[in-house]
Computed example of a mutant assay.
Amino acid sequence: MELPPRSAVTRDTRRLELFRARGLRIGVPFLILLAWQLLSITGAIAPETLPPPSVILSALKELVADGELQSAIVVSLSRAFTGLLIGGGVGLIAGLFAGLWKVGEEIVDAPLQMLRTIPFIALIPLFITWFGIGEGAKVAVIIAASIFPMYLNTYAGVRGVDAKLLEAASVFGLSRFRLAWRIILPTALPAILVGLRYSSGIALLALVVAEQINAQSGIGYILVNANQNQRADIIIAGILVYAALGIVTDLIMRAIEHIALPWRPHFAIS
C-alpha cells in the first residue's frame, strides 16, 4: 500500500483547517441569529423589547432606501477619521518624543499618564463649554480618546528595542538619526501599528458617545430620532451598523499590519 506524499497530506490538512475555521466563523453567528429569530417567533422574546432579525433587516432596508443611512455613515466616518488623525498623530509624536529622548519623557510622560486616567466621557461637559454643541465638541471627544492608546504603544515600542541592537549600531558608528531611522523605528513599528489599531477601535467607541451631543447628522442622529419615536428596530439596526464599521476598521488595520510587517511570523495553537 502506497502512502500519499507528505506534501499532499499537508495540503489536505490545511484545507480542512481552513474549512473548519471559516465554517465556525460563519456558522456560529448564523446559529445565534437563527435562535434569536425562533425565540421571537415563539414569543419567548417580546418583539417590543428585542425585535427579531427579520424586522431589523427591514429597518435597515428602509434606511437604505431613503438614503439616510448612506449619508449618515459618511458623516460619522468623517468625524471618526478626523479625530483619529489628529489624536493618533499627537499620540505618535508624543510617544516618539518621550521614547527617543530622556528630556521628552520628563516633559511629556507624567502629564499624559495623569490625563489618561480621566475617562474621556467625563470631559464632554468641558468640551461643550469650550466648543459648544457643534462638530468641534464631537471631534474633540474622539481626539481625547484616541491619543493615549497610540502614545502608550509607541512609547513602549521605542523603549522596548533590544539593547544589543543599539550596541551593535554604536559599534558600526551609526549617527543618532540613522540609529532612530534604521533600528529603533523599524523595531518599534509592530507596537506602533498595534497602537493605531487600538486607537481606531477607541475612536469608534468615542464616536458613539460623541454623536449623542445634539447630533444633527450621522448614525447617532438616526438613533436619537428612533429613540424619540420608540423604534427599537432602527435603534438595533444603528447599533449593528456601528459594529459593522468596527469590524471593517479592524480588518483594514489588520491588512495594514500584514502589508507593513510581512516578515512577522503568524502562528496559533491548534
Score class of each variant (00 low, 15 high):
I213Y: 07
R182Q: 12
R176L: 12
E135M: 12
I234T: 15
A110W: 12
L96A: 03
G95S: 00
V139D: 11
K138P: 12
V171A: 14
R176E: 15
A203R: 07
M114A: 13
Q230M: 13
L112G: 06
R116W: 07
L189F: 11
G238H: 06
A144L: 11
L185K: 08
L123S: 03
G136K: 09
T154G: 02
D109G: 05
F148H: 04
F120D: 02
I222N: 07
N214G: 08
A191V: 00
F131T: 11
I213S: 04
R176A: 08
V209M: 11
A210Y: 07
V161D: 05
Y198M: 13
W181H: 15
V108L: 08
I183T: 12
G132N: 11
L185R: 07
E105C: 04
N153Y: 00
A226T: 10
V171M: 13
A110R: 14
A237W: 10
A226H: 15
Y155G: 06
L196I: 04
V171S: 13
V139M: 11
M114T: 05
L126D: 03
L115S: 10
G134F: 04
L223P: 09
I128P: 11
Y198D: 02
L112C: 03
N153W: 03
I192W: 00
P111C: 07
F97M: 14
D109H: 14
R182L: 12
L174T: 15
G220W: 07
